[in-house]
Nucleic acid binder design. Structure first.
Length: 262
DNA sequence: AATGCGAGCAACCGCGTTTGA
DNA sequence: TTCAAACGCGGTTGCTCGCAT
């Protein structure tokens, strides 16, 4: 019966008011974070310590980033979720300013929605494959487009002098569906830059047919934990365009007969 | 204009883990 | 070492808002 102070007097629930937010922010400014139950008792807030903690971490904390997730962030979420599953907090550690709650909500509202629309179990390997082979390449294209659009100025990612469209490919055997430059095809790798400035390399050089013959399992990654970090692409474009080539996915699925029937 | 419905998100709950007395 | 309190995580709920009818 640890933190169930709800047994006690009139604790407030539901949405926070401006006054409550202000109280919480003031208290933390004076006393710092932590000791949430003490905070709840001492601050004058009629909330549980848990509620205060959640409100602070998910909403009031100054470095909480709000707004749509960039393609880079979405890409990271998909990649990390494929490795770690629903370890939201762990995933959130690699997306600065994003909370586990936000990432969890993203997964449930966007990713699982896609799975529902495709009538695939979002936990199935089939869906994981679809994500890797059709969604993630789309995000890469977006990332790339945004880095190009801002290439000459402040971009901090992917645009090494030798990084052209053709240098991109997918993780775990999945190639992008289309990749701009058709005149050449170099090594297939995705380079993104983490916060410390080091490059993260997603490397693979399978052909599309090889890919289809060897659909990836949704584990393993070429990234090490240490290498994972916030993607620093600025100027990222973000529209809520989750269109990720359903037609192409179904076509590929039918042609290659991978996966069960609907 | 009113109503219904679904998507998105903030907040709550239960439980396992950590901390410290 | 033990145990209660606090913390943190992941799942779930429920509210709000926008859109369709």
């Amino acid at each position: 019966m640890s933190d169930n102070q709800g047994a006690m007097v009139d604790l407030r629930r539901g949405p926070w008011t401006l006054e409550e937010d202000s109280l919480l922010v003031h208290y933390i400014a004076l006393h710092g974070e932590g000791r949430w139950n003490l905070l709840a008792r001492s601050s004058g807030l009629k909330r549980t310590g848990k509620s205060c903690r959640l409100r602070w971490l998910n909403y009031l904390k100054p470095d909480v980033k709000r707004g749509n997730l960039s393609p880079e962030e979405q890409f990271l979420i998909l990649e990390l979720h494929s490795r770690w599953g629903n370890r939201w907090s762990r995933i959130a550690q690699h997306l600065p300013g994003r909370t586990d709650n936000e990432i969890k909500n993203y997964w449930r509202t966007r990713v699982q929605k896609q799975a529902r629309q495709m009538k695939i179990d979002s936990n199935s390997s089939l869906f994981a494959d679809a994500v890797r082979c059709f969604w993630m390449p789309r995000l890469l294209e977006k990332m790339q487009a945004s880095s190009y659009s801002s290439s000459s100025s402040t971009t901090t990612a992917t645009n090494n002098s030798n990084t052209s469209c053709s240098s991109y490919s997918m993780v775990n055997g999945c190639l992008p569906l289309s990749c701009g430059n058709s005149n050449e095809k170099k090594s297939h790798e995705v380079v993104v830059v983490n916060q410390s400035g080091s490059e993260l390399m997603f490397n693979n050089s399978l052909t599309s047919s090889e890919m289809m013959n060897e659909m990836p399992s949704s584990n393993s990654s070429l990234m090490d934990d240490d290498e994972l970090g916030p993607l620093l692409m600025e100027n990222s474009l973000m529209e809520n365009d989750e269109s990720w080539a359903m037609d192409e996915f179904w076509h590929a699925r039918n042609v290659h007969e991978w996966g069960g029937g609907m």
